[in-house]
Amino acid sequence: MTGIEYRDRLRRQMLPHILCPGCGHGIVLKALLRAARSLELDWDRTVFVAGIGCSSRLVGYIDGCTLHTTHGRALTFATGMKLARPELTVIVITGDGDGLAIGGNHLIHAARRDVDLTCLLLNNETYGMTGGQAAPTAEPGAISTTTPGGARERSFDACALAVAAGASFVARGATSLPLELDGLIARGIAHRGFSFLEIASDCPEYFGRYNQLGRGPEMLQLQRRRLDEVDRTLRAKRSLGSRRAEGPPPLRTGVLHERPA
């Protein structure tokens, strides 16, 4: 989508934003604004709901109807709103800590009920806002402030969880593929039923620094390598220099599951 004036959709009095240099979340915010524009959403009938965390801060910058809620509970606020005002388009922005740890149960049941919401879950494998603690999505071996010797627990696949719980639209996007992200978000919003999008984002300030993955650009390159088939084969033969046990796992983007609600 060309010709979009982002500033018209941002609360300029809230700028500069609090996100760190190189954070992937701004890429998602812009993709969301482009997707909203491509769908020509009625801005007065669109609500952005978020929980707590860096990703959830995004709603603070959108100049529209926004709701910043408690930790993990964005989906319940959104469900209540959708029940009372079904004509609204309700978009939830959450993170891996917010949506998969403290709010994980709400995600399961929002998917099971197949409530007509769109949930963007920004996964940067860490609790960035509170100082870089390991999130449940941190891969084994990941270094964080709570796992200085490397994470030992397994992470889990949010998209597989959403499919199993009953979401009727499940997709995965990545901040290194912003234009694909536009389309995925737009399809998610247009879908009637519970749309779940996991978006691989990056936290250079904590996760990148602790795991020696470089700053924002290097982390985006690493993401691209996780997307790339050839490189995936190569990686099986040699380490990428990451301190993680086996190097980051492959990323599969696109629509992973879709059925009529």
């Binding site: 930790h71 800590g97 740890a101 609790y127 509170t130 603690q133 709570t146």
Partner: peptide
């Protein structure tokens, strides 16, 4: 542990003690 400011500094400090071998403790986030 579960992160929330300002308590969370203690969880990081304890994690570091464990990683440095100074504390033998079951630690779960």
């Amino acid at each position: 542990a579960f992160p929330i400011r300002p308590y969370d500094t203690v969880m990081q400090a304890a994690a570091k003690l464990i990683a440095n071998g100074k504390l033998d403790c079951e630690y779960i986030v």
